[in-house]
Simulated assay, not measured.
Amino acid sequence: MSHTAHIPSHRKPRRSASKLAVRAGVAGGVLSTLAMAGTASASPSEPVTETTLEMPVLNLDLAADVSSAVTTAAENTAAAAVTGELRSQEEQARTGAAAEAKKAKEDAEKADAEKKAKEEADRKAVAERATRSSARGSLQSTAASNDEDTVAAPAAGSAAAIVNFARAQVGKAYISGGTGPYSFDCSGLVQAAYRQAGVSLPRVSQDQSTRGSAVSLSALQPGDILYWGPSGSAYHVAIYVGGGKFVGAQNSGTGIVERSLSYDPPTGARRVL
């Protein structure tokens, strides 16, 4: 049987290595003092009785303490790493959410700006259409008020020669390609009328619709060239003779006629004189 078998094996709470070392040192010193005192007090004439001192066994589980400390440190380190990672992820999440919110705000502002721009463009388009409709309605109303009995405003100078010639051709036949003197097409009549004023015009209506300068339909003067269709691509021309009327070679069914502007409102006008 071991000499320490009588000592109960009860595990005590762990102590730090430093405290255990101090206590072990104190115990060793006490035991050394007792041994020296016993030796000094023994008489040489008396037999010496050997005394066995049992050394207390110090239950120093240093390896377990060190292992526990290392394990605790590792656990603390791992916990700190996890905490740092979580904080980093939270910061990234906040940064990403802020960026997404900023982008969403910018997209919303851009969409709102585009919507406002489109609404403004639509408003302007509606206003322009309304203005054009109003101008055309005013022109047609003015032309309608001047019936065929209205006396045309007198033309002056070269314009008078153009107007007089055009009116003198009323009733003659319309023939495609005709340039007079007994039949005309629309551009042939205009070319012949301007020839009376000493002005040479191109032969076809497309070219005639680009000569001179543009003039508003609300500011026409006798002798102005009226055209139908886009400028440069006009499909018909005639001569404004004043009083809200024009003279033109319309078609083979009507021949050369004098009509109110409301009969067939032109697209635009050119002033050559």
Score class of each variant (00 low, 15 high):
E75S: 13
E75A: 14
E75N: 07
E75T: 10
N76T: 06
T77K: 00
A78D: 05
A78R: 05
A79R: 04
A80F: 03
A81W: 02
A81I: 01
A81H: 03
V82G: 04
T83R: 02
T83F: 00
T83L: 06
G84D: 09
E85T: 14
E85L: 13
E85D: 13
L86F: 00
L86P: 00
S88C: 03
E90D: 12
E91T: 15
E91A: 13
E91W: 03
E91R: 09
Q92P: 02
R94P: 06
R94Y: 07
G96Y: 11
A97Q: 14
A97E: 14
A97P: 06
A97G: 11
A98W: 01
A99G: 08
A99M: 03
A99Q: 07
K102L: 07
K102G: 09
A104V: 00
A104D: 05
A104R: 01
K105N: 04
K105M: 00
E106W: 00
E106A: 12
D107K: 01
D107M: 00
D107Y: 02
A108W: 00
E109I: 03
A111G: 02
D112A: 09
D112Y: 04
A113D: 02
A113I: 02
E114T: 02
K115C: 01
K115L: 07
K115H: 03
K116G: 04
K116N: 09
K118G: 02
K118Q: 11
K118M: 09
E119Y: 08
E120R: 10
A121P: 07
A121Q: 08
A121E: 14
R123N: 14
K124L: 11
K124R: 12
K124S: 11
K124N: 07
K124D: 06
A125Q: 10
A125M: 04
A125R: 05
V126M: 05
V126Q: 10
V126Y: 05
A127M: 09
A130K: 08
A130T: 15
R132V: 15
S133T: 13
S133V: 12
S133H: 12
S134L: 10
A135I: 13
A135P: 06
R136A: 15
R136T: 14
G137W: 08
S138L: 06
S138H: 03
S138C: 01
Q140I: 15
Q140R: 10
S141Q: 12
T142F: 15
T142R: 08
A143K: 05
S145R: 14
N146L: 15
N146R: 13
D147F: 01
D147E: 04
E148K: 01
D149S: 15
T150K: 13
V151A: 14
V151N: 12
A152H: 03
A153G: 13
A153L: 11
A153T: 12
P154S: 11
P154L: 07
A155Y: 03
A156V: 11
G157A: 00
G157R: 02
A159V: 04
A159M: 13
A159F: 00
A160K: 13
A160M: 11
A161F: 01
A161H: 10
A161R: 15
I162G: 06
I162R: 03
I162P: 08
N164Q: 13
N164P: 06
N164K: 11
F165M: 08
